[in-house]
Design a protein around this nucleic acid. Structure first.
Lengths: 233, 233
DNA sequence: CGGGATCCGTAAAGATACTG
DNA sequence: CAGTATCTTTACGGATCCCG
């Protein structure tokens, strides 16, 4: 039933009752990124079934982590509560611990371009873009099959950045061609954008200003600043 | 299989693979308290079956959280690794979050005297006790059935404090009679020892010095210092 | 297309009992 | 003391279907 089942007065046990059910923390992370709607959460939390997401969101609502809220048009979405938000620094510390210590090799062996682009999209800083003009950036991962190779980020002034899997037809301001692992690695902070560009694993063609300000508008994972632990010599 | 099953490059997902399997964090907490042996862990982590504890310890060993180590006599015990120890501040923050925010009413409705005594025992500070003499303190919870009512803490100089459920035969230096909820509440920091004594829910009879220094040697839960969040009026 | 509900097979957890 | 073996129950994962 997803009831708390440790019958202990230990606060850690109480906390575990709340955070242990599978997907709970990942759903919170996605909501903290600003995701509002059911199917958006699905995209940001790869692998969860709609059934389980639905159930988990209800569990989380019952526990006071999440509430249903109106988006700007009478539609319903999800948002985190203050109770959940107090947990955010803890979850970040947890992520930093994993970033420092845990081997990521397995996951980067099967990187997921669509998920990566979804994450990149969320953190694009449009302040570095022209104010009055739509900016379009095309990412290409040549190693992938034709249909999964290209992604367009479309930044219309004053609107959230859009991710397209099909050519939206706009003129492209900047073309980025990249090795998928290299882009993942740079975004996660295991390397840097500069390193990967210098090694020719990421290449930019197009608008000079966008190229020059890449590191400004392409904000990386919040874990990218945490240094990777040095392996003992 | 207990393999990590989120296939994501997100560090939080990686961390969840490690910490989510049920009992993992509670076992770590118990080890951090200084528990070394299998059946001691069982006592400190109420409700876990030996089957699952055995399996979980092996999982945790495989993941590098725990290692088997020699105790002082060729016997084998368990201890946490540096990897796990880096997680301790995160787990403490998690516990503080729960202590501040989560309702503990349900768990204090069915308090567990033996577990409470086990926890109290672990944190007794024997520096406040006589140096050369064995100190014995008897706790009595009058509301409980005869056989579960009495607990003896036996502190022999230079040795870990012993918890006895049967009269060890020593002369008792201090008798403590308490309401079980009151003692749990005081130890957890929802109230204080002083408050409960003043309300006559905890009473001490015996050695004056021990009585006077109660708050010194009876070290409370590490969460006892975190203030409980005020409920909005 | 967004937001689910249903059904079913598998994997993890819980309860007891038992053993070297 | 330190676990295994066995059995039952619950949770999770996947596919499919429904409804506005």
């Amino acid at each position: 039933m997803s009831e708390g089942t440790y019958d202990s007065f230990c606060p850690v046990a109480k906390a575990c009752d709340v955070i242990e059910p599978r997907w709970t923390l990942l759903i919170l992370c996605e909501l903290w990124l600003g995701t509002l709607r059911f199917n958006e959460i699905r995209r940001g939390v790869p692998g969860i079934s709609p059934t389980l997401l639905s159930k988990r969101l209800k569990d989380m609502e019952r526990r006071g982590l999440v509430r249903r809220a109106e988006i700007n048009g009478g539609e319903l979405g999800y948002e985190t509560t203050p109770l959940a938000n107090e947990l955010q620094p803890v979850v970040n510390a947890l992520g930093k611990w994993a970033h420092r210590n845990l081997d990521m090799d397995l996951s980067i062996d099967k990187p997921d371009a669509r998920l990566l682009m979804w994450k990149i999209r969320r953190k694009i800083d449009t302040n570095a873009f022209p104010r009055r003009k739509t900016t379009v950036i095309r990412f290409t991962y040549p190693e992938l099959a034709e249909e999964q190779r290209n992604y367009w980020l479309v930044a219309r002034p004053g609107q959230p950045v859009d991710l397209c899997l099909l050519d939206p037809g706009h003129e492209v301001d900047l073309f980025i061609r990249a090795d998928l692992k290299a882009m993942t690695s740079a975004w996660m902070g295991w390397s840097s954008l500069r390193t990967e560009i210098d090694a020719n694993r990421i290449a930019l063609v197009g608008d000079q200003k966008l190229t020059a300000t890449l590191e400004k508008w392409m904000v990386r994972s919040i874990f990218a600043t945490a240094p990777k632990q040095q392996v003992a010599a």
